[in-house]
């Protein structure tokens, strides 16, 4: 057991304090300490993006951020993307356009897409494809993911 660190992180709008082992990755803290299991782990090498969350409003791979590094930060996970009971336009668009199959990459994909639309509210197909290059999906062939992001950007689906 290594050293522990006291952290205070605002997660989905709520202040969460915790004493964590220094080596605790943000993703494990979210999943196992806070029970926010929507954020997934799919690889060991920062490739797959299934663990993507927002930290201070920008997408990060939470498998490559120490929980300690998030001290003082605001973190948003898929569970907190939309107000309770509602859906974010991207969530709705993924549903509408069949942008998911097994659903495992989906939370990270949606969080990455949200950052993409923040940076570029009207992306072309090619910009969407490159904007999601850090997220792997094995089911969909990305076709409907691109359609979903495009639809969300165009407000084609009700928010």
């Amino acid at each position: 057991m290594g050293a522990t660190v006291r952290i205070c992180v605002t997660v989905n709008g709520e202040r969460r304090e915790s004493e964590v082992e220094a080596r605790t990755l943000l993703v494990y803290w979210l999943r196992e300490e806070l029970g926010l299991t929507g954020t997934h782990v799919g690889c060991d090498t920062t490739n797959c993006g299934a663990c993507t969350v927002h930290m201070n409003g920008e997408s990060v791979k939470s498998c490559t951020v120490l929980a300690a590094q998030a001290d003082g930060a605001e973190v948003t996970t898929i569970e907190g993307l939309a107000p309770e009971g509602g859906l974010h336009p991207l969530q709705d668009a993924f549903w509408e356009k069949h942008g998911l199959q097994c659903g495992f990459c989906t939370p990270g994909m949606i969080m990455a897409a949200a950052d993409l639309l923040q940076r570029n509210p009207n992306p072309t197909d090619d910009e969407i494809r490159h904007g999601l290059e850090g997220n792997l999906c094995r089911c969909t062939g990305y076709h409907n993911i691109v359609k979903a992001v495009k639809a969300a950007a165009a407000n084609e689906v009700p928010a």
Binding site: T46, G49, T52, M55, E58, S59, V60, K61, T64, V65, A112, D115, L116, R119, G131, E133, G134, N135
Partner: peptide
């Protein structure tokens, strides 16, 4: 460099 998430960190 890599992808947006990596570039953000």
């Amino acid at each position: 460099i890599a992808d947006q998430q990596v570039r953000n960190r």
